[in-house]
């Protein structure tokens, strides 16, 4: 790890003013569970690390007047997974939170940090390899070891987005509030993320002088059921090989509207419009669930080692749809 200046931010404004104009200059730290790995592994060596944990009132889960929720950026994942409010209204978010990493990491890790975490690609995380994302000239995964890599949205870099929280929140149409030097902006979380073809070095639209301050979840539509299913190698302390978040509003067994978001599938949380279209307006049966699952992987592009993801996604999407209507 290289030396850096450590700043305990006193307010959002203070944090933003401490931020530099480029990514080499400064990074923000919340739980630090991802950042410390990057610093110690010499993946990044910024001049300044700005601690957001010292900002008062950024840790909260609150109901909004319209029946939705607001969650502060430095709220821990544990707090989210244990919130009865979230468990009742948005099971998918609660379930995703309970499957993040390990209990110790959930105690430290925060929502903002989880949404902004960097990719787990082993080429990216190996400091002696200069891959495309780190300013190099090639994506080694595309031509090399790509068992854990993407089947959608790949090129020129083939990472998958590692956040469980992002997939679950997007399935609830969540919005993200960002604060920067130029002021505040709010956008759909789904639009927060970028594909490598849009920006190969970053995974989202955040500028170096901006920080995430809040997540807003609109009230669920009538009779909405939701579920998060995650498959990984280990039972705990693991990122998803494949995961799926389903939020479905229903009239009886008929699907009125639905969001299906895949994790471990693409360089960003991947909303599967194809699968959603197969379900919307239909009575949910095993056949319908199966055709939606099939539609979800329809235009997948696999590489040498990740073909298994097709099967795995189909199976867990189908299971998730059939499970959600039972819940």
């Amino acid at each position: 790890m290289k030396n850096f200046t450590y700043i305990n931010a006193k307010s959002i404004k203070d944090a933003v003013e401490s931020l530099g104009k480029n990514w080499n200059e400064s990074v923000v730290k919340s739980g630090g569970t991802d950042l410390l790995g990057e610093l110690k592994g010499m993946i990044i060596s910024p001049e300044k690390v700005i601690n957001l944990k010292t900002i008062p009132n950024l840790d909260y889960i609150e109901s909004t007047q319209d029946g939705g929720l607001k969650i502060g950026a430095v709220t821990t994942i544990t707090k989210i997974s244990e919130s009865s409010l979230i468990k009742t209204k948005f099971p998918v978010i609660s379930q995703a939170a309970s499957k993040v990493a390990s209990p110790q990491l959930r105690n430290m890790g925060t929502l903002g940090g989880n949404l902004c975490q960097r990719p787990r690609c082993w080429y990216y995380r190996e400091n002696s390899i200069l891959c495309l994302k780190k300013g190099g000239s090639q994506c080694y995964a595309f031509t090399g070891e790509n068992k854990f890599h993407c089947i959608f949205g790949g090129g020129p870099c083939f990472i998958v987005h590692p956040s469980d929280m992002a997939a679950s929140l997007i399935s609830c149409d969540a919005e993200i509030k960002i604060y920067g030097r130029k002021g505040e902006r709010e956008l759909e979380l789904n639009n927060f993320y970028l594909l490598p073809r849009e920006n190969v070095n970053r995974e989202n639209v955040l500028n170096p002088d901006e920080i995430v301050v809040e997540i807003i979840i609109p009230p669920p539509k009538n009779n909405t059921k939701s579920i998060y299913i995650k498959q990984s190698i280990r039972e705990t302390w693991d990122f998803a090989l494949c995961s799926v978040a389903v939020s479905m509003s229903m009239s009886g067994l008929k699907c009125d509207d639905v969001r299906i978001v895949l994790g471990g599938a693409a360089p960003k949380p991947w909303r599967s419009i194809n699968a959603e279209n197969e379900l919307r307006g239909k009575m949910i049966t095993e056949t319908v669930a199966e055709s939606a699952a099939k539609a979800a992987v329809n235009n997948a592009q696999t590489m040498r080692d990740n073909k298994y993801k097709i099967n795995l996604f189909q199976n867990i999407i189908k299971s998730a749809i059939l499970e959600v209507i039972k819940s």
Partner: peptide
């Protein structure tokens, strides 16, 4: 990794 000869995990 066969391209770089490095262990990537």
């Amino acid at each position: 990794d066969e391209q770089t000869g490095k262990m990537i995990n």
